[in-house]
């Protein structure tokens, strides 16, 4: 079953720049998909539309049964609650502890304290940071901060995890550790879409990989068939 379906999607910014052109794409539930391509090829625009930071100019985007293009501003939170997003710059609250950062996304749902506590501890265990719950983000390494961000993104059990260059600021070893965490999350049933520039990761992971160029899909490699044809 498709979790994400794009039909003839086009995105033109107010500046007149067309970032995505007539794109059609479907991603199945439980998939792990890499989005690659050079800077300005439309990767970021594509995922921003998935979590409704941007609206498509034309065409239809369905994410988990929600027609994203038709979603009103006031209802965006309903989509966001089904999606976790992880960024290159982590986007953690600097003045909140690791625990508070992760618990934050559950508190907006109004869950009871005990339930929040057990969920947060469980997810921090999954990303291997249970021993640092009382630390503040500035006291953590880049890799650890990214794990907190991942924990926050998945703590409410989203169907989809969108990662925008999550390893962009990390060294190769730490990057692979993050990839292992993501792979584990994927195995637990969460669909993952990850934008990356790091071809070595794509090669190692052997997942479905979509290469974009000038706002179009240049190539869609099925699982395990990726070849580095960039040069």
């Amino acid at each position: 079953m498709d979790l994400i379906r794009l039909r003839d999607v086009k995105k033109t910014y107010k500046t007149g720049v067309t970032a995505i052109q007539q794109m059609s794409l479907s991603i199945e539930k439980g998939d792990f998909v890499f989005l690659i391509g050079s800077t300005g090829c439309g990767k970021s625009t594509l995922i921003k539309m998935l979590y409704r930071e941007e609206k498509p100019t034309s065409g239809q985007i369905i994410v988990g049964g929600i027609d994203v293009g038709k979603l009103r501003n006031g209802k965006v939170y309903k989509l966001r609650r089904k999606i976790g997003v992880v960024f290159q710059d982590f986007k953690l609250l600097p003045k909140a502890t690791v625990y508070e950062n992760v618990a934050f996304s559950l508190e907006v749902f109004g869950l009871p304290k005990d339930e929040i506590h057990s969920k947060v501890i469980k997810v921090l265990e999954l990303v291997g940071l249970k021993h640092k719950i009382k630390n503040y983000p500035r006291q953590l390494s880049g890799g650890e901060q990214q794990r907190v961000a991942i924990a926050r993104a998945i703590v409410n059990g989203p169907k989809l995890l969108i990662c925008d260059e999550p390893t962009g600021n990390l060294d190769p070893n730490t990057s692979m550790e993050i990839m292992e965490v993501l792979d584990q999350i994927n195995k637990l049933g969460t669909t993952i879409i990850m934008v990356t520039h790091d071809i070595s990761i794509v090669k190692k992971m052997k997942k479905r990989t979509i290469r974009l160029q000038s706002g179009r899909i240049l190539k869609d490699y099925a699982k395990g068939t990726f070849k580095d044809e960039s040069i």
């Binding site: 006031g74 939170y77 609650r81 986007k91 609250l93 996304s105 907006v108």
Partner: peptide, 16 residues
């Protein structure tokens, strides 16, 4: 602003 951005991101409604 960052805090608000993150709140939006994790699915806080405008009222939240």
């Amino acid at each position: 602003q960052r805090e608000i951005e993150i709140m939006r991101l994790v699915g806080a409604s405008n009222l939240n």
